[in-house]
Amino acid sequence: MLKRIRNNKSGQAIVIVMVVAVILLAIGGTVMVFASNNSNNASKQYSGKKAYYAAKSAINVIDSSLQKKDAAPANSLGTQVLNDAIGNAGSDGKTSGTLSAAVTLPSNSAVGSEYSITGTTLSYSGTVSDEGNQLHIVMDEVKVKLTGHYGEDHKYTVTSKYQYNGYVTASGSAITAYNNQTDGWTQEGTEQ
């Protein structure tokens, strides 16, 4: 019986062709999956880089407003942070706080609606000491953090750290003059 089945060669060509077909389709399918993943990764990386540069350039812009070294207290982020630090200073002079902010990107045709900045926070800790007619403010750390978005799925968070050392005149918790920026604002670095 087995010998008869073994000797019966009809249909053998189709079986061989089917095996070859399955192997070819498996190879083709694998190549297709790899190519598809490759294409998706390239596309994701491209959009991710857009989010990265949006975040990086936005924190550089914020950095300029934070580190403004004007003698007069202009409406800058630096002044707003220092005013908040003075307002939050305890009797021992220690101060800390976290400010959250909303960043609106320029309305420019090149900046599509896919771009946005979210989760902006400015946190600080340091000391404010009363030295006669002026305050000595030492910020051990001011940390700015924000997330740049491109589309819904691509985001990048950057953090920048600063220190501040300077003397100011203040009325209540509002700085009226910067007297001596011993070190002023100094940037410690940016983490990405």
Partner: peptide, 10 residues
Amino acid sequence: GTGTMTVRIN
């Protein structure tokens, strides 16, 4: 072109 980035502290 140019534009204005606005930061509003809550």
